[in-house]
């Protein structure tokens, strides 16, 4: 960890104050709902970033782990009355385990074949979930219970609590990602992403590292799933196991800036915002909101291919370039 300077401390305090104050200023349940969903998508993005961004294997099937996280919470509560505070970590382990199995099988495929294989597996998992009566099948699972202790069972009556709690999760995971970014793990992943053969010849076991990255991404996405379950308190396979969800996870990360620390967070904030507000204002034109959304995505991906996080960097480069050009004629 770098030395904590006075400036940095002030900045952190500033961020903290803003995060605390925001849900109080915009105090409607709807605003809180949006903020909570932003947090969940941020976690999804940060998780996926490990396999899609750092390791460079584009997985289009991460909805599997989202669902496992959500359902683990639900079923452990239903069967064993287990608090979600514990269940969510069990969910992470379970998802990592499943990721190990799936990853072992699929990670040897490259590029598009890997993407398609993950889509196929996700579809299979969806069908299995739909046809498994023990976990509710297509009729879904409920965990809503007004009699449970809200704190112990993470079913708060006030949406503000959700916002703060989930923000805390996001900050925690963000700090974790920041730290991981400086370790050898991510360093090796970047090397593998850059040129796998070269990395292997330098002694890095690419297959192992990619598998670790895949498992880690599954665990974080599973965490997001658990939080989603606690927030919605009802879910069924059609809400969380669709290919659309998998694609949105990819979208969020890429829009923000794939392979960066803060990219997924930015992507989550911007995309949630755009999708919720285009719907509120425009959906009565029979789909116009989604058209606008799609067009925006195309524009962003076309003109800012490195993601929104790269905007400050590009402005800076642009200014430096301008400054250099200005100096040149004087010489």
């Amino acid at each position: 960890m770098k030395k904590l300077s006075y400036k940095k401390l002030l900045l952190c305090a500033g961020i903290l104050v803003i995060l605390i104050v925001l849900p109080l200023i915009f105090n409607t349940a709807f605003s809180h709902h949006i903020m909570t969903m932003m947090c969940i998508w941020a976690l999804l993005g940060m998780g996926w970033n490990f396999i899609g961004g750092y390791a460079g294997q584009i997985s289009n099937g991460h909805a599997i782990y989202y669902a496992f996280g959500a359902y683990t919470n639900a079923m452990l509560l239903q069967w064993f009355n287990l608090s979600p505070w514990i269940a969510m970590w069990i969910g992470c382990l379970l998802s990592a385990g499943i990721a190990f199995l799936i990853g072992k099988g699929l990670l040897r495929f490259r590029g598009h074949v890997f993407a398609i294989a993950t889509m196929a597996v996700a579809e299979c998992v969806r069908l299995i979930f739909i046809n498994t009566k023990a976990i509710g099948g297509a009729t879904g699972v409920y965990i809503f219970n007004a009699e449970l202790d809200p704190a112990l069972y993470m079913q708060f009556t006030d949406t503000k609590t959700y916002v703060y709690l989930y923000m805390a999760f996001v900050v925690a995971v963000l700090l974790f990602v920041r730290w991981l970014n400086t370790t050898k793990f991510c360093y090796y992943l970047r090397a593998i992403n850059g040129n796998e053969t070269a990395a292997e010849s330098a002694g890095i076991n690419a297959a192992n590292y990619k598998l670790w990255a895949y498992m880690l991404s599954a665990a974080i996405v599973s965490l997001a799933g658990s939080l989603y379950m606690q927030f919605m308190r009802y879910t069924d396979p059609s809400m969380i196991l669709t290919s659309n969800i998998s694609m949105m996870i990819v979208l969020v990360t890429v829009m923000g800036g794939v392979g960066t620390v803060y990219g997924p967070l930015i992507g989550a904030i911007v995309l949630t915002y755009i999708s919720e507000y285009t719907r509120v204002y425009l959906s009565h034109y029979n789909g116009l909101d989604m058209v606008i959304y799609g067009v925006l995505v195309i524009l962003i991906v076309l003109f800012i291919p490195d993601g929104l996080i790269s905007i400050p960097g590009r402005i800076r480069k642009h200014r430096e370039h301008k400054a250099a050009v200005k100096e040149a004629p004087a010489k």
Binding site: F26, Y273, I309
Partner: peptide, 21 residues
């Protein structure tokens, strides 16, 4: 700079959330 930009973006987004609401 990146942190500040992130902050500003977030603040802007959240502020628009309120107005939009």
């Amino acid at each position: 700079k990146k942190l500040i930009c992130l902050l500003l973006t977030a603040a802007m987004m959240f502020s628009l959330v309120a107005c939009g609401g």
